[in-house]
Design a protein around this nucleic acid. Structure first.
Lengths: 214, 214
DNA sequence: GACGATAGATAACGGCGTTATCTGACGGAA
DNA sequence: TTCCGTCAGATAACGCCGTTATCTATCGTC
């Protein structure tokens, strides 16, 4: 029998490559990522990477998947904290925004306009689905507990789009010196959407006594 | 005196280059734009482009500026149509979304995360400012006419971020088959924000009798 | 008609993503 | 122990990229 890389060795090689890719994305910016550069840092030839990934796009897809999973980790951790549904939802929102500004390249990888099509990278599709379910879960709980009155999936997407919109404008530098500060826009956006979902039967939240984070 | 390109000739050359760049951005996608490719289509050598632009980034900045100005044209045209402030505001929103899906590469150029810093390309800064004022203008009118009750600049940015958020999620392919359709999310987002701004003194809009566009 | 300046071409650089080919080390069979 | 098949990874090379240095040929001016 020939000499073969075990599955574990393949996985380790892929993990090393993705780790270096993420490091360089942070250090150099996403567009300066290169096969040659990654290989250089690993002390490999550029072509060695092709034993682990089909091409550069596949490496980017793996990095995207990792980034998305890390975001989901943060959201799930925030959701798992103690507290009523209002404070936990606020935690989820804070975790989302914190992640975006703590890891802008990861956020960019996840939400950049040019994304690989569905079905091309199944693991990326799974990470997408997991992320989406995190954006929905907390609103489902709000509805289940009677805190708000709305179609949970729709309301969750409205929240998501609202949050993503403010974050994107900020990241694209569209909130210049004359615009209200990021946090003001975000707070106002969230407050307006929440208010609109407080139907006559919904139980209203108590004003946050300690002030809001961020 | 030497042979010199007149200002008009410089402007014409720049315009031709940007036009080809825009064409190729649509045809090939933004990341496949190249100096060599633009020059090839013009029948020029790649280096000839450097008589008109410092580098590729400068060409991209010019294309960005043109894209932003075209968006502003559409918004201003929508705002100038006859009708009360409600219908005109709806027209502005429709124009924004229509532009995004009619010219996704232009929208991408305008709102991509990696944007040149302020002060680097004054014309781009001007296009940014003009775009921003279009996002604010119609809300200012709403407030002035007593239609809504809010800080106009803040409310305008919330609208902008909300719209941009839905459009971005859609363009990044984040609204999969299980998500509500784009138009549903957008409508719900806009309705919620509007409702939240209908203060006690605001004059409420009449329900659109003909149904909504798009 | 000669000159100076310059618009644009040519040549070349290093770096990119990728393919074809080579090499050498290893596991198993004899 | 020797030999062989296999494959991980290296080398070489391709065409393309953005950019710089240099050349050339054309033009307005005198």
């Amino acid at each position: 029998m020939p000499v073969l890389l075990t599955d574990a060795q393949i996985a380790e090689g892929r993990a090393r490559i993705v780790a270096v890719a993420e490091r360089q994305a942070v250090e150099l910016g996403l567009e300066r990522l290169s096969m040659h550069g990654i290989a250089r840092e690993l002390g490999w030839s550029a072509t060695a990477l092709y034993r682990y990934f089909d091409n550069k796009d596949a490496i980017l897809a793996a990095a995207r998947t990792a980034a998305y999973d890390r975001l989901s980790d943060q959201l799930e951790a925030a959701m798992a904290r103690p507290g009523d549904i209002w404070s936990r939802s606020r935690e989820v929102g804070n975790a989302y925004v914190d992640f975006a500004f703590a890891h802008p390249e990861a956020y960019r990888l996840i939400f950049e306009f040019a994304q690989p099509g569905r079905g091309q990278y199944p693991e990326l599709d799974a990470a997408n689905a997991r992320g989406r379910s995190n954006m929905i879960g907390y609103v489902e709980q709000m509805v289940a507990q009677g805190a708000v009155d709305a179609d949970p999936v729709l309301l969750a997407h409205v929240f998501w789009a609202g949050l993503h919109g403010v974050v994107s404008l900020q990241m694209a530098g569209k909130l210049g010196p004359d615009a209200p500060p990021f946090e003001t826009i975000r707070r106002d956006m969230v407050r307006r959407i929440i208010r609109s979902a407080l139907g006559p039967t919904a139980r209203r939240p108590i004003r946050n006594p300690a002030g809001e984070q961020r």
